[in-house]
Amino acid sequence: MEVVETKVKSGIIEKYYLPTAEEFAIDKSITVIENDVNLEEYKEKVKSFYKSIFKSIEDDYKYLIDNLSPGSLVDSSLLSSVIFLDDYQARTLKEEINDFSRELINRFGEKRDGTNAYSIGTYMLLKKNQDQYKKK
């Protein structure tokens, strides 16, 4: 982590950090469930991995809100929606998203003069309550 900004607020020095890692590496042991895996240990690994990702997103969101000003959302984008896929479409879309994400990292993953760091991420999770969606 690298300190990128400090502010004094009510006599307390607040430090704002940016991660120095260029990308996350996913522990291979959480990508596939083996038959002999301890399910509770596996769940804890997955939970820890996702918790670290969402913590980073939460920190960036809080920073955005704390520094909100006219025009500050110009370079931000947020999209969240529900789509309906069969198993094949879900696997295919996941692969396309992963390929596109790797392409972005290859193109823009290094700090250059005149650039700013942006958080970018994608998620695709099976919705908890399938019954709330009715067929049209």
Rank of each mutant, 00 (worst) to 15 (best):
S119Q: 11
I53N: 05
D66I: 01
N129E: 12
E23H: 05
S101Q: 12
T6L: 07
I120G: 03
F49D: 01
E22K: 00
Y17E: 04
L79K: 02
E41W: 01
V82N: 09
E110Q: 07
S48G: 10
D87W: 00
N67F: 04
E95Y: 01
K136C: 10
E22L: 10
T115C: 08
S77E: 15
F54E: 04
T20C: 09
I120E: 03
T6V: 15
E5R: 05
N106S: 11
V4L: 11
I12S: 04
I83N: 01
E96M: 07
E95L: 08
S69N: 10
Y61I: 15
K9C: 12
F24C: 09
A21D: 12
E5M: 10
E22P: 00
Y17N: 10
E96C: 03
S48A: 12
D66C: 03
K51V: 04
D59G: 10
I57E: 06
Y16G: 00
D59V: 12
E58H: 06
L93H: 01
L78W: 11
E58N: 09
E96N: 06
V74C: 08
S76C: 13
V4R: 06
Y50S: 09
I120L: 08
D36A: 14
I26W: 09
A21K: 00
K15M: 14
E34R: 00
K111H: 08
M124E: 03
E41V: 10
E34A: 12
K135W: 13
S29H: 01
Y123S: 14
P70Q: 07
V3Q: 01
Q89L: 09
K128T: 13
D131E: 13
G71I: 02
M124F: 08
N116G: 06
R112T: 09
S81D: 13
Y17W: 03
T115W: 02
I13K: 11
K62V: 15
N106K: 07
G11L: 04
D75M: 04
Q89N: 13
V3I: 12
Y17H: 07
I30A: 03
K15Y: 07
M124D: 06
L126T: 10
L18H: 05
A21Y: 07
E41H: 00
K136G: 15
F84K: 00
L93D: 14
N116S: 14
D66Q: 05
M124P: 01
D99Y: 03
E41Y: 02
T115S: 07
L78V: 13
S10W: 08
K47R: 08
V8E: 14
V37A: 07
K43N: 09
K94H: 15
E40M: 04
V37E: 14
D36H: 05
S69M: 06
R107T: 14
Y123N: 14
Q132H: 11
E58W: 08
Y50I: 12
F54Q: 03
F24S: 12
Q132S: 15
Y42K: 01
K9G: 03
D36S: 10
F100I: 05
K135E: 15
L18E: 13
T122C: 06
K7H: 04
E23D: 13
G109F: 01
K45T: 11
N35G: 11
I57S: 09
L18V: 06
E44K: 02
G109V: 02
E95R: 01
T20D: 11
V46I: 14
M1R: 04
S56M: 12
